[in-house]
């Protein structure tokens, strides 16, 4: 059988990276505050799991994410739909929406801290804000983007309004809305980690920040890896949901 170069390369390159990393630490080219070995990271992993520290921080983070994301995404969906469907809503709230959208969510962190303190409310609000805009924008754009001809077809066949909504509006807009929700999930995770790094009291970000302040490189690396895996996992999970919801699309 012909060796599969693609498989070989895509497996060996990350492996090589690990080996080089391990070798560099084995030869003590850098002091341990600068570089710890992969095995030390694995050990730290075991440590934070055994003490329950990781689980505690992670569940804090994920609870916040769930609360903030659900609130932000559902409000965003409703707002985006209202904005697209009602001319008045669009005229009144459109400009404010477009203006606020331009401001990076992170820039609101100091203001929200001053107004809301550093409690849970603040974190939920900042995540909700991160989740709100992509969904609202996607909902608005996709409803606005439904071709007029679709409505003409439905009126041609005298379709009642519920058919219009269930058979035309939802199928036509759901792919883009779901894409917006997926983006907002990734954004929420990013903003959550950032917020936890800034106002350290609990959560994965705080675990990393504490690790940094105590020069525990191994724990910081555990945090980086967990943050990546969770981000990837959330995105993949949503991708599966998305594919499931859109089975009709490429079938």
């Amino acid at each position: 059988m012909k060796p599969d170069l693609k498989l070989i390369l895509s497996v060996s390159s990350p492996l090589l990276l690990l080996i080089v990393w391990q070798a560099v630490t084995a030869f003590k080219l850098f002091p341990p505050e600068v570089l710890v070995s992969p095995t030390a990271v694995v050990a730290a992993f075991g440590e934070v799991i055994a003490t329950g520290e990781l689980q505690r921080h992670l569940s804090e983070s994920l609870t916040r994410l769930a609360g903030g994301f659900t609130t932000g995404a559902s409000l965003g969906l409703l707002f985006g739909l209202a904005l697209a469907l009602s001319k008045t809503v669009e005229q009144v709230f459109g400009p404010t929406f477009q203006a606020l959208r331009q401001i990076p969510v992170l820039a609101f962190i100091p203001m929200l801290i001053l107004l809301l303190g550093i409690d849970e409310v603040f974190k939920i609000v900042i995540i909700a804000k991160a989740a709100f805009f992509p969904v609202a924008l996607a909902a608005y754009d996709s409803v606005k983007g439904v071709p007029k001809s679709y409505f003409e077809v439905s009126s041609l066949y005298r379709a009642p309004w519920w058919v219009l909504i269930s058979k035309i509006l939802i199928p036509a807009t759901i792919p883009n809305i779901l894409a917006g929700v997926r983006l907002s999930l990734t954004r929420s995770w990013l903003v959550l980690v950032a917020a936890e790094l800034i106002v350290a009291d609990s959560g994965l970000g705080q675990m990393m920040e504490m690790g940094r302040q105590m020069f525990r490189l191994d724990i910081v690396m555990v945090g980086v890896i967990v943050a990546g895996v969770i981000g990837f996992g959330l995105d993949r999970l949503f991708q599966l949901l998305q594919a499931h919801a859109l089975r009709w699309k490429t079938a």
């Binding site: 995770w189 990013l190 980690v193 950032a194 790094l197 970000g205 990393m208 980086v224 943050a227 990546g228």
Partner: peptide
């Protein structure tokens, strides 16, 4: 997440 690299 990009800012997650910051502590490291």
């Amino acid at each position: 997440p990009i800012l997650g690299w910051l502590p490291l």
